[in-house]
Design a protein around this nucleic acid. Structure first.
Length: 876
RNA sequence: GCCCCUGUGGCGGAAUUGGUAGACGCGCCUGACUCAAAAUCAGGUGAUGCAAAUCGUGCUGGUUCGAGUCCGGCCAGGGGCACCA
């Protein structure tokens, strides 16, 4: 062999060029084969890819390449989630235009992705900041508006004071903006909302159908939607105590069974009744003002005490006209949930208990735990939340909680006041509508004009897209669109009088809520989707991305797909049939004596025995090996994919990403691991080279295979069966292990060939066949090396376009089986018997075995359990 | 606080889903090749023990002929939600 080292740096670009020239990864919409749509979450063009991208896109590429070989028409596209704040921040800091910054980054990252050898159909590439993309988004906004799925309303919103924009609830994490980290404030603003809550029930229910989603993600969405069943109850008010003769107060409860444990009513500071009462009570007004100050930042909420203010208003218990309950304004009642009012049952709710203990209102337990004497049952600091029997509850006494709930509901439903029942059943959701207005420049303009005379006017379809003006400046804080006179001031599309454009842009999560649909036909200019193409390709068969999108992106996309269906742009509800959430790439951290972090590239690792030590390569200074953490700039524990690809090649990086750790778990990036992967690349190259050199005359399939040949063939087909299954289930770490095993077996087999005489024709055939299978098995993971090996084996075709090897299942069946033999559950021996031996034969063989006899000490066995082809257990 | 997940060698992890615990890789040890190192090749590597053997999947009870796997109770780590009535 001319060169005994595989030169990835030379080979990888060469094969990438060949794939590209032959256009083998371009997908035709008219392809008659069964379709398979594999998609990885598209990246934000930050400028450089990171190891997380490498892992994500490698997994997707393995699936794409394997499915292609298995006979599917595979759609595997890539695009750019290109709107967003970093572009504006760059504009402010570096005086570059967001557009040129974004497109420069796209060019750089595209080059990096291409160096990974991904089998992508680049002809379908799209960027969400392209008017050719977002014009359709504007069209859908107008369609949704018409369909009643968009609403403009004044609302309390999360305001990020650093990014100077509104954030959705989903984007507020621990009271801070998900990007800026700034403590979020509450403001009242008029905003555009997508009515995702209209679909709450459907989004929740359909989770049960997503059987190829991780249970964890489904659970997180379930919790996020937060369904609770309860009762809306109208409490009559004592008119003498109310400010404006209000007659009733409606509350929502999930525990109507505890109605006889009620001690107080509480309403939100924003509740109309509180507002009305405050007008006549300055002390109450002051309390409300104070309460509104708190209750925005999470940290404050956690520490804020449960405060209330007695309004003096009295509510009448629905089952007892003599029973008066004081109505408090309380700082922990949210106007946004339920009716903004509750009744407090302190014995069975922690918050209510804290409240009564503070104000001395006492409590009455109404649910008694089993095995507790109701006479001795008292509540002090801890409420009782468990199951039990009703007590102190008049006609409910003795019932279970469920019976009591039903009884209360029935009774109140059948009582009316003013022609309306006193109660009705209601389901409430935690899920709020999706506020999409952002006071930023670099986003999709909302196609609306505000006119003094006509009000809110949609931009006519013929005037779409509303494009972003490019002549903007970022020298002042705030939204440049807001001060762009020629863009902002337009004639009203309806009356022609001077009007102004909506200057808010859409949340970038809107952009990513339908890109998967656009990929099915990114060329159509007249509509967001070509229904034929979309109906053909969707749903995405396998979607792969990070768990951090478990709620945000995945819930929005599920909503958007339904909204697109309602407006005729799609024909299905669920966009992603299969979802896989991959783990993070993590790395050790290195801390210098002065406390500063050192990067992995600056550090040399030395190991002596079990000890590992790190020092700076430059000065030899010892650095402390710290915790293994997610790769991040602040911890400086990042490894640049470019460096790895330059030094070892893309295949090595890809192989390492798939090895060892299960794909859903975090993978620890180590230098040793990468070198191990690199050594395996070289080993495969040598192994295939050696087999390629074997010259045993014309390669024809022999009629019979000898034992040596059979062993090789069994190993190859065994690996084929296992790898096929594990790719299907995305268990790439197991694929890697099976490929190692096959390579080990082939290496041993070649080692056995000590003389030309040992190289029989059947063995040579088997070796070549196995080598071909081996190459095809690792081709999805290390595609460049595979092409090089495939060519070395004498093939003229590309392995990337080859069909998956045909499995010969009869090779997986062994003639004999080795059964472990246990005596009383402890392994004592092994016996090898013909595969189809009867139980009697096996029992006889087992009892004749010396080790078994010894263990039985001459006594007859009580019982012999034989599990065919598994195990034998002798019970003494 | 509520909900969920995970605990297996020095390390990452396998284990046909109740049937030989530790596949495969990393690391380490021994040897060959080499003046030497790297690479490569051969062998070893859960613990204790010279050995036979015994113990061993966070701890602890249980079910079972048989438990890493199932059930109960603890402990530890991680994640999600969090004034949601």
């Amino acid at each position: 062999m001319p060169n005994d080292r595989y030169n990835a740096r030379e080979a990888e670009p060469r094969w990438q060029r060949i794939w590209d020239e032959r256009g083998i990864f371009a997908t035709q919409n008219a392809d008659p084969r069964p379709k398979y749509y594999v998609l990885e979450m598209f990246p934000y063009p930050s400028g450089r890819i990171h190891m997380g991208h490498v892992r994500n896109y490698t997994m997707g590429d393995v699936v794409a390449r394997a499915k292609r070989a298995m006979g599917f028409a595979v759609l595997h596209p890539m695009g750019w989630d290109a709107f967003g704040m970093p572009a504006e921040n760059a504009a402010i800091e570096r005086k570059v235009h967001p557009k040129s910054w974004t497109y420069d980054n796209i060019a750089a990252m595209k080059k990096q992705l291409q160096s990974m050898g991904l089998s992508l159909d680049w002809a379908r590439e799209l960027a969400t900041c392209d008017p050719a993309y977002y014009r359709h988004q504007q069209k859908m906004f107008l369609d949704f508006l018409q369909a009643g799925l968009v609403e403009r309303k004044q609302s309390k919103v999360n305001w990020d004071p650093v990014d100077r924009t509104v954030l959705a609830n989903e984007q507020v994490i621990d009271g801070r903006g998900w990007r800026s980290g700034a403590v979020v404030e509450q403001r009242e603003l008029t905003q555009w909302f997508f009515k995702i809550s209209d679909y709450a029930e459907d989004l929740l229910g359909a989770l049960d159908t997503l059987d190829r989603w991780p249970e964890k993600v489904r659970l997180m969405q379930r919790n996020w939607i937060g369904r609770s069943e309860g009762l809306l109850i109208r409490f009559m008010l004592d008119p003498a105590t109310t400010p404006n003769r209000e007659s009733e107060l409606e509350i929502f409860t999930t525990r109507p069974d505890t109605l006889f444990g009620a001690r107080f009513m509480a309403i939100s500071p924003d509740h109309p009744l509180a507002q009305a009462a405050a007008k006549k009570n300055p002390a109450l007004a002051a309390f409300i003002a104070e309460a509104k100050k708190i209750g925005t930042a999470q940290a404050e909420i956690d520490t804020a005490e449960k405060l209330g203010f007695d309004t003096g208003i009295k509510a009448i218990h629905p089952f007892d006209p003599e029973w008066m309950l004081p109505v408090y304004v309380a700082n922990f009642i949210l106007m946004e949930y339920g009716t903004g009012a509750i009744f407090g049952c302190p014995a069975h709710d922690q918050r209510d208990l804290d409240f009564v203990n503070r104000y001395g209102l006492g409590n009455t337990p109404v649910v008694c735990p089993p095995d507790v004497d109701p006479k001795n049952f008292v509540i002090t600091d801890t409420p009782y939340l468990g199951d039990g029997r009703m007590i102190n509850s008049r006609f409910l006494d003795g019932m279970s909680i469920e019976q009591a709930k039903e009884k209360v509901a029935r009774r109140l439903e059948n009582q009316t006041r003013g022609n309306r029942p006193l109660a009705q059943r209601q389901v409430n959701y935690r899920l709020r509508d999706w506020g999409i207005s952002r006071q930023r420049y670099w986003g999709c303009p909302i196609p609306i004009v505000h006119c003094e005379a006509c009000g809110v006017v949609p931009v006519p379809e013929k005037d779409l897209p509303v494009t972003l003006p490019e002549d903007v400046t970022f020298d002042r804080p705030g939204n440049p669109l807001d001060r762009h006179a020629t863009w902002k001031n337009v004639a009203c599309p309806q009356c022609g009088k001077p009007a102004r454009r909506e200057t808010d842009t859409m949340d970038t999560f809107v952009d990513s809520s339908w890109y998967f649909a656009r990929f099915t036909d990114p060329w159509i200019a007249t509509a967001p989707t070509d229904r034929k193409a979309a109906d053909h390709w969707l749903p995405v068969d396998q979607y792969i991305g990070g768990i951090e999108h478990a709620i945000l992106h995945l819930l929005y996309s599920r909503f958007f797909t339904r909204a697109m269906k309602a407006t005729g742009h799609l024909g299905l509800d669920e966009p992603f049939a299969g979802l896989f959430t991959q783990g993070m790439v993590v790395h050790e951290t290195y801390r210098r004596k002065d406390g500063a972090f050192a990067t992995p590239a600056e550090v040399t690792i030395e190991s002596a025995g079990d000890e590992r030590r790190a020092k700076l390569s430059s000065t030899g200074e010892t650095v402390e090996i710290g915790a293994i953490e997610k790769m991040s700039k602040s911890k400086r524990n990042t490894v640049d994919p470019d460096d790895i690809i330059r030094e070892y090649g893309a295949d090595t990086a890809r192989w390492f990403m798939l090895s060892d750790s299960p794909p859903e778990r975090d993978v620890i990036w180590t230098e040793e691991g990468v070198q191990g992967a690199w050594r395996f690349v070289q080993r495969l190259w040598r192994l295939i080279g050696e087999i390629a050199q074997i010259d045993a005359g014309p390669v024809t399939r022999p009629a019979e295979f000898g034992p040596a040949a059979l062993k090789v063939r069994k190993a190859a087909h065994g690996a084929l069966a296992k790898v096929s299954e594990d790719i299907d289930k995305l268990r790439f770490n197991r694929c890697v292990a099976h490929i190692y095993e096959l390579a080990n077996t082939l290496g041993d087999a070649i080692g056995d060939v000590t003389s030309p005489a040992a190289l029989t024709a059947d063995f040579a055939f088997a070796l070549r066949e196995a080598a071909g299978i081996l190459v095809q098995l690792f081709a999805p993971m290390m595609p460049h090396l595979a092409e090089e090996c495939w060519a070395a084996l004498g093939h003229k075709s590309l392995v990337a376009t080859e069909s998956w090897p045909q499995l010969e299942p009869e090779l997986l069946v062994e003639d004999t089986v080795t059964l472990p033999v246990q005596v009383n559950g402890k392994k004592r021996a092994e016996i090898t018997v013909p595969r189809d031996s009867g139980k009697a034969e096996i029992e006889a063989a087992v009892l004749a075995h010396d080790a078994v006899k010894r263990a039985l000490e001459g006594k007859p066995p009580k019982k012999v359990i034989i599990v065919p082809q598994r195990i034998v257990n002798v019970v003494a």
